[in-house]
Protein backbone atom coordinates (compact mmCIF):
# COMPACT_ATOMS: atom_id res chain seq x y z
CA UNK A 1 0.00 0.00 0.00
CA UNK A 2 1.23 3.48 -0.81
CA UNK A 3 1.31 5.40 2.43
CA UNK A 4 1.69 8.96 3.58
CA UNK A 5 4.93 10.03 5.19
CA UNK A 6 4.52 10.99 8.80
CA UNK A 7 3.57 14.59 9.59
CA UNK A 8 1.80 16.70 12.15
CA UNK A 9 -1.84 17.45 11.34
CA UNK A 10 -3.45 20.62 12.61
CA UNK A 11 -7.08 21.65 12.42
CA UNK A 12 -7.45 25.37 13.06
CA UNK A 13 -10.88 26.89 13.63
CA UNK A 14 -10.15 30.44 12.43
CA UNK A 15 -8.23 32.02 9.59
CA UNK A 16 -6.02 33.84 12.03
CA UNK A 17 -5.16 30.63 13.78
CA UNK A 18 -4.40 28.94 10.46
CA UNK A 19 -2.06 31.70 9.36
CA UNK A 20 -0.31 31.59 12.73
CA UNK A 21 0.11 27.83 12.51
CA UNK A 22 1.67 28.17 9.11
CA UNK A 23 4.04 30.83 10.42
CA UNK A 24 5.06 28.48 13.21
CA UNK A 25 5.55 25.57 10.85
CA UNK A 26 7.61 27.62 8.42
CA UNK A 27 8.50 26.31 4.97
CA UNK A 28 7.83 22.74 6.12
CA UNK A 29 4.16 23.52 6.68
CA UNK A 30 1.45 23.28 4.06
CA UNK A 31 -2.23 24.00 3.94
CA UNK A 32 -4.62 21.28 2.84
CA UNK A 33 -8.28 21.46 1.90
CA UNK A 34 -9.88 18.38 0.34
CA UNK A 35 -6.57 16.54 0.17
CA UNK A 36 -7.23 15.02 -3.23
CA UNK A 37 -4.22 16.76 -4.75
CA UNK A 38 -1.85 17.02 -1.80
CA UNK A 39 -2.18 13.53 -0.34
CA UNK A 40 -1.45 11.64 -3.58
CA UNK A 41 1.51 13.97 -4.06
CA UNK A 42 2.71 13.24 -0.55
CA UNK A 43 2.36 9.51 -1.13
CA UNK A 44 4.56 9.90 -4.21
CA UNK A 45 6.93 12.09 -2.19
CA UNK A 46 6.41 15.22 -4.28
CA UNK A 47 5.64 17.22 -1.20
CA UNK A 48 6.79 16.17 2.22
CA UNK A 49 5.51 18.77 4.67
CA UNK A 50 6.25 18.16 8.33
CA UNK A 51 3.06 20.01 9.26
CA UNK A 52 -0.22 19.89 7.41
CA UNK A 53 -2.81 22.51 8.28
CA UNK A 54 -6.38 21.71 7.32
CA UNK A 55 -8.56 24.55 6.09
CA UNK A 56 -11.76 22.54 6.18
CA UNK A 57 -12.72 23.71 9.65
CA UNK A 58 -12.63 27.41 8.71
CA UNK A 59 -16.22 28.62 8.49
CA UNK A 60 -15.20 31.61 6.40
CA UNK A 61 -13.96 29.31 3.68
CA UNK A 62 -17.15 27.29 3.62
CA UNK A 63 -19.43 30.31 3.01
CA UNK A 64 -21.50 31.06 -0.02
CA UNK A 65 -22.73 34.62 -0.21
CA UNK A 66 -24.28 35.71 -3.47
CA UNK A 67 -21.51 35.54 -6.05
CA UNK A 68 -18.80 35.19 -3.44
CA UNK A 69 -17.78 31.61 -2.93
CA UNK A 70 -15.70 30.21 -0.09
CA UNK A 71 -12.86 28.14 -1.47
CA UNK A 72 -13.52 25.15 0.76
CA UNK A 73 -16.84 24.42 -0.84
CA UNK A 74 -16.44 21.01 -2.38
CA UNK A 75 -16.70 20.70 -6.13
CA UNK A 76 -19.92 18.72 -5.64
CA UNK A 77 -21.39 21.54 -3.58
CA UNK A 78 -20.29 24.11 -6.11
CA UNK A 79 -21.83 22.31 -9.06
CA UNK A 80 -25.06 21.87 -7.11
CA UNK A 81 -25.64 25.54 -6.23
CA UNK A 82 -29.00 26.11 -7.94
CA UNK A 83 -28.41 29.76 -8.75
CA UNK A 84 -25.05 28.94 -10.32
CA UNK A 85 -26.61 26.38 -12.55
CA UNK A 86 -28.51 29.32 -14.00
CA UNK A 87 -26.17 32.26 -13.83
CA UNK A 88 -22.70 30.73 -13.70
CA UNK A 89 -23.24 27.59 -15.65
CA UNK A 90 -19.66 27.47 -16.89
CA UNK A 91 -18.35 27.45 -13.31
CA UNK A 92 -20.76 24.75 -12.18
CA UNK A 93 -20.11 22.77 -15.34
CA UNK A 94 -16.33 22.95 -15.00
CA UNK A 95 -16.63 21.85 -11.37
CA UNK A 96 -18.73 18.85 -12.29
CA UNK A 97 -16.27 17.78 -14.96
CA UNK A 98 -13.45 17.41 -12.45
CA UNK A 99 -12.35 13.80 -11.91
CA UNK A 100 -15.07 11.59 -10.38
CA UNK A 101 -18.17 12.06 -8.23
CA UNK A 102 -16.25 10.56 -5.31
CA UNK A 103 -13.35 12.95 -5.66
CA UNK A 104 -15.69 15.91 -6.11
CA UNK A 105 -17.25 15.09 -2.75
CA UNK A 106 -13.83 15.79 -1.25
CA UNK A 107 -11.97 18.14 -3.58
CA UNK A 108 -12.64 21.84 -3.19
CA UNK A 109 -12.92 24.90 -5.37
CA UNK A 110 -9.71 26.29 -3.87
CA UNK A 111 -7.93 23.01 -4.35
CA UNK A 112 -8.82 22.89 -8.01
CA UNK A 113 -7.73 26.50 -8.51
CA UNK A 114 -4.40 25.77 -6.82
CA UNK A 115 -4.00 22.31 -8.39
CA UNK A 116 -0.38 21.32 -8.75
CA UNK A 117 0.75 21.37 -12.36
CA UNK A 118 0.92 17.92 -13.89
CA UNK A 119 3.32 16.03 -16.05
CA UNK A 120 3.72 12.34 -16.65
CA UNK A 121 7.40 12.60 -15.80
CA UNK A 122 6.42 14.06 -12.44
CA UNK A 123 3.17 12.40 -11.39
CA UNK A 124 4.96 9.16 -10.60
CA UNK A 125 6.20 7.48 -7.47
CA UNK A 126 9.57 8.18 -5.96
CA UNK A 127 10.88 4.84 -7.27
CA UNK A 128 9.73 5.58 -10.82
CA UNK A 129 11.26 9.02 -10.80
CA UNK A 130 14.50 7.53 -9.60
CA UNK A 131 14.65 5.53 -12.85
CA UNK A 132 14.85 8.75 -14.90
CA UNK A 133 17.09 10.43 -12.34
CA UNK A 134 14.21 12.72 -11.33
CA UNK A 135 13.17 16.00 -12.93
CA UNK A 136 13.56 19.65 -12.04
CA UNK A 137 10.11 19.90 -10.49
CA UNK A 138 11.21 17.57 -7.73
CA UNK A 139 14.60 16.17 -6.74
CA UNK A 140 16.23 16.58 -10.18
CA UNK A 141 17.73 19.11 -12.54
CA UNK A 142 16.27 18.56 -15.97
CA UNK A 143 12.90 18.97 -17.62
CA UNK A 144 12.47 15.71 -19.49
CA UNK A 145 9.74 17.18 -21.66
CA UNK A 146 12.15 19.77 -23.04
CA UNK A 147 15.61 18.77 -21.86
CA UNK A 148 17.30 21.96 -23.06
CA UNK A 149 14.75 24.16 -21.34
CA UNK A 150 15.64 26.13 -18.24
CA UNK A 151 12.07 25.90 -16.99
CA UNK A 152 9.58 23.23 -16.03
CA UNK A 153 6.78 22.54 -18.50
CA UNK A 154 4.31 20.78 -16.22
CA UNK A 155 0.77 21.49 -17.31
CA UNK A 156 -1.98 23.50 -15.69
CA UNK A 157 -4.71 20.88 -15.39
CA UNK A 158 -7.44 22.67 -13.49
CA UNK A 159 -10.91 22.76 -14.99
CA UNK A 160 -12.21 25.67 -12.96
CA UNK A 161 -9.16 27.92 -13.38
CA UNK A 162 -9.61 28.63 -17.11
CA UNK A 163 -13.22 29.52 -16.43
CA UNK A 164 -12.29 31.77 -13.51
CA UNK A 165 -9.78 33.60 -15.70
CA UNK A 166 -12.17 33.83 -18.63
CA UNK A 167 -15.07 35.29 -16.68
CA UNK A 168 -12.81 37.66 -14.76
CA UNK A 169 -13.25 36.25 -11.26
CA UNK A 170 -11.27 37.75 -8.41
CA UNK A 171 -9.55 35.88 -5.62
CA UNK A 172 -9.27 37.10 -2.05
CA UNK A 173 -6.09 35.97 -0.31
CA UNK A 174 -5.26 36.21 3.37
CA UNK A 175 -1.74 35.92 4.68
CA UNK A 176 0.49 37.09 7.48
CA UNK A 177 0.80 40.46 5.77
CA UNK A 178 -2.95 40.92 5.64
CA UNK A 179 -5.23 40.41 2.72
CA UNK A 180 -5.31 41.23 -0.98
CA UNK A 181 -7.58 40.65 -3.92
CA UNK A 182 -6.13 39.55 -7.24
CA UNK A 183 -7.81 39.00 -10.57
CA UNK A 184 -7.82 35.32 -11.51
CA UNK A 185 -5.75 36.16 -14.57
CA UNK A 186 -2.92 37.37 -12.33
CA UNK A 187 -3.03 34.39 -9.98
CA UNK A 188 -0.94 32.14 -12.24
CA UNK A 189 2.58 32.04 -13.64
CA UNK A 190 3.49 30.19 -16.81
CA UNK A 191 6.00 28.04 -14.98
CA UNK A 192 5.49 24.44 -14.01
CA UNK A 193 7.19 24.83 -10.64
CA UNK A 194 6.33 28.36 -9.64
CA UNK A 195 2.85 28.28 -11.08
CA UNK A 196 1.02 30.45 -8.55
CA UNK A 197 1.53 34.07 -7.61
CA UNK A 198 0.11 33.13 -4.22
CA UNK A 199 2.73 32.93 -1.51
CA UNK A 200 2.91 29.60 0.33
CA UNK A 201 1.75 31.24 3.56
CA UNK A 202 -1.24 32.90 1.94
CA UNK A 203 -4.65 31.26 1.98
CA UNK A 204 -6.99 31.52 -0.96
CA UNK A 205 -10.12 32.41 1.00
CA UNK A 206 -12.79 33.23 -1.49
CA UNK A 207 -13.59 33.62 -5.13
CA UNK A 208 -15.65 36.61 -6.24
CA UNK A 209 -17.53 35.77 -9.37
CA UNK A 210 -18.78 38.62 -11.54
CA UNK A 211 -22.49 39.29 -11.32
CA UNK A 212 -24.47 37.96 -14.26
CA UNK A 213 -24.65 41.02 -16.42
CA UNK A 214 -24.93 40.52 -20.14
CA UNK A 215 -22.16 37.98 -20.39
CA UNK A 216 -22.11 34.31 -21.01
CA UNK A 217 -19.45 31.65 -20.77
CA UNK A 218 -18.94 28.01 -21.59
CA UNK A 219 -16.35 25.40 -20.77
CA UNK A 220 -15.38 22.47 -22.96
CA UNK A 221 -13.12 19.70 -21.75
CA UNK A 222 -11.19 17.19 -23.80
CA UNK A 223 -10.01 13.98 -22.17
CA UNK A 224 -9.88 10.27 -22.87
CA UNK A 225 -12.70 9.15 -20.58
CA UNK A 226 -15.83 10.82 -19.35
CA UNK A 227 -14.61 10.52 -15.78
CA UNK A 228 -11.35 10.42 -13.79
CA UNK A 229 -9.22 12.18 -16.38
CA UNK A 230 -7.63 15.59 -16.18
CA UNK A 231 -8.17 17.84 -19.18
CA UNK A 232 -5.69 17.51 -22.02
CA UNK A 233 -7.41 20.60 -23.33
CA UNK A 234 -9.88 22.89 -21.64
CA UNK A 235 -11.56 25.72 -23.48
CA UNK A 236 -13.21 28.49 -21.49
CA UNK A 237 -14.93 31.06 -23.65
CA UNK A 238 -16.52 34.22 -22.32
CA UNK A 239 -18.37 36.89 -24.25
CA UNK A 240 -20.02 40.10 -23.23
CA UNK A 241 -22.75 41.00 -25.64
CA UNK A 242 -23.05 44.53 -26.94
CA UNK A 243 -26.00 46.22 -25.26
CA UNK A 244 -28.75 47.28 -27.62
CA UNK A 245 -32.13 48.89 -27.01
CA UNK A 246 -33.84 47.94 -23.77
CA UNK A 247 -33.35 44.29 -22.91
CA UNK A 248 -32.33 43.41 -26.40
CA UNK A 249 -28.69 42.89 -27.24
CA UNK A 250 -27.34 43.65 -30.65
CA UNK A 251 -26.05 40.15 -31.15
CA UNK A 252 -22.55 41.53 -31.47
CA UNK A 253 -19.71 40.70 -29.15
CA UNK A 254 -18.55 43.64 -27.10
CA UNK A 255 -15.76 41.81 -25.34
CA UNK A 256 -14.51 38.26 -25.26
CA UNK A 257 -11.95 36.11 -23.58
CA UNK A 258 -10.74 32.69 -24.66
CA UNK A 259 -8.68 30.78 -22.11
CA UNK A 260 -7.14 27.38 -22.68
CA UNK A 261 -6.37 24.81 -20.04
CA UNK A 262 -4.05 21.86 -20.44
CA UNK A 263 -1.74 23.49 -22.98
CA UNK A 264 0.66 25.49 -20.81
CA UNK A 265 1.74 25.79 -17.21
CA UNK A 266 -1.00 28.32 -16.61
CA UNK A 267 -4.50 28.88 -17.91
CA UNK A 268 -3.49 30.48 -21.18
CA UNK A 269 -5.44 33.48 -22.32
CA UNK A 270 -5.48 33.93 -26.10
CA UNK A 271 -6.05 37.65 -26.73
CA UNK A 272 -5.77 37.16 -30.51
CA UNK A 273 -8.76 34.85 -30.42
CA UNK A 274 -10.76 37.35 -28.41
CA UNK A 275 -9.78 40.13 -30.80
CA UNK A 276 -11.13 38.09 -33.70
CA UNK A 277 -14.56 38.14 -32.08
CA UNK A 278 -14.82 41.71 -30.86
CA UNK A 279 -17.46 43.71 -32.65
CA UNK A 280 -18.63 40.70 -34.63
CA UNK A 281 -21.65 38.53 -34.44
CA UNK A 282 -20.64 34.97 -33.67
CA UNK A 283 -20.77 33.95 -37.29
CA UNK A 284 -18.91 31.02 -38.76
CA UNK A 285 -16.20 33.27 -40.12
CA UNK A 286 -15.53 35.01 -36.83
CA UNK A 287 -15.53 31.68 -35.02
CA UNK A 288 -13.10 30.23 -37.55
CA UNK A 289 -10.79 33.23 -37.15
CA UNK A 290 -10.87 32.90 -33.38
CA UNK A 291 -10.24 29.16 -33.56
CA UNK A 292 -7.29 29.68 -35.87
CA UNK A 293 -5.92 32.34 -33.55
CA UNK A 294 -6.23 29.98 -30.59
CA UNK A 295 -4.59 27.14 -32.47
CA UNK A 296 -1.34 29.01 -33.15
CA UNK A 297 -0.11 29.75 -29.60
CA UNK A 298 -1.36 26.49 -28.07
CA UNK A 299 1.78 24.47 -27.38
CA UNK A 300 0.94 21.12 -25.89
CA UNK A 301 3.99 19.03 -25.07
CA UNK A 302 4.55 15.31 -24.70
CA UNK A 303 3.69 15.06 -21.03
CA UNK A 304 0.01 14.24 -20.83
CA UNK A 305 -2.30 11.67 -22.34
CA UNK A 306 -2.61 11.71 -26.16
CA UNK A 307 -0.24 12.66 -28.90
CA UNK A 308 0.74 16.32 -28.75
CA UNK A 309 0.11 17.14 -32.39
CA UNK A 310 -3.43 15.83 -32.14
CA UNK A 311 -3.98 17.87 -28.99
CA UNK A 312 -2.87 20.98 -30.81
CA UNK A 313 -5.21 20.18 -33.71
CA UNK A 314 -8.05 19.78 -31.25
CA UNK A 315 -7.66 23.36 -30.04
CA UNK A 316 -9.22 24.57 -33.24
CA UNK A 317 -12.08 22.08 -33.05
CA UNK A 318 -12.93 22.72 -29.43
CA UNK A 319 -12.66 26.50 -29.57
CA UNK A 320 -15.03 26.35 -32.52
CA UNK A 321 -17.44 24.12 -30.65
CA UNK A 322 -17.31 26.25 -27.52
CA UNK A 323 -18.13 29.39 -29.49
CA UNK A 324 -20.86 27.62 -31.40
CA UNK A 325 -22.38 26.62 -28.10
CA UNK A 326 -22.29 30.23 -26.93
CA UNK A 327 -23.95 31.31 -30.14
CA UNK A 328 -26.56 28.59 -29.78
CA UNK A 329 -27.44 29.72 -26.30
CA UNK A 330 -28.42 33.23 -27.29
Amino acid sequence: MLRLPSFKYLQPRTLKEAVAMKADAGPEGMYVAGGTDLYPNMKRRHQEPRTVISLMGLKELRKLDGWTVGTCLTLSELSDVPTFRQSHRAVAHAAELVSTPLLRNMGTLGGNLCLDTRCNYYDQTYEWRKAIDFCMKKDGHICWVAPSSPRCWAVSSSDVAPVAVAIGAEFRLVGPQGERVVPAGRFYHNDGINYLTKQPDEILVEVRLPAPDGWDAVYHKLRRRGSFDFPVLGVAAWVKWEPGNGNRETGRVAEARIVLGGVASWPQEIPEAAAALRGCELGDDAIARAAAAAYRPAKPLDNTDFDLSWRKQMTRVHVTRALEELRGRR
Binding site: L2, Y9, Y39, S54, S99, T100, L102, L103, N105, M106
Partner: peptide, 29 residues
Amino acid sequence: HGCELGECGTCTVLLDGAPVLSCLVLGLA
Protein backbone atom coordinates in the same frame (compact mmCIF):
# COMPACT_ATOMS: atom_id res chain seq x y z
CA HIS B 1 -7.89 -0.58 -2.12
CA GLY B 2 -6.64 -0.55 -5.69
CA CYS B 3 -4.24 2.38 -5.98
CA GLU B 4 -4.25 4.48 -2.78
CA LEU B 5 -4.13 7.60 -4.98
CA GLY B 6 -7.81 8.28 -5.59
CA GLU B 7 -7.68 6.84 -9.09
CA CYS B 8 -10.00 3.84 -8.92
CA GLY B 9 -12.78 4.24 -6.34
CA THR B 10 -12.18 0.82 -4.78
CA CYS B 11 -11.81 2.23 -1.26
CA THR B 12 -15.13 4.10 -1.24
CA VAL B 13 -16.88 4.58 2.10
CA LEU B 14 -19.65 6.95 3.11
CA LEU B 15 -18.53 9.93 5.17
CA ASP B 16 -21.49 11.79 6.62
CA GLY B 17 -23.54 10.02 3.96
CA ALA B 18 -21.44 11.03 0.97
CA PRO B 19 -19.28 8.53 -0.91
CA VAL B 20 -15.62 9.46 -0.60
CA LEU B 21 -12.22 7.91 -1.28
CA SER B 22 -11.03 6.59 2.06
CA CYS B 23 -7.45 6.41 0.76
CA LEU B 24 -7.39 10.22 0.66
CA VAL B 25 -9.25 10.96 3.88
CA LEU B 26 -7.02 11.40 6.87
CA GLY B 27 -8.15 9.35 9.86
CA LEU B 28 -7.74 12.41 12.05
CA ALA B 29 -10.19 14.34 9.88
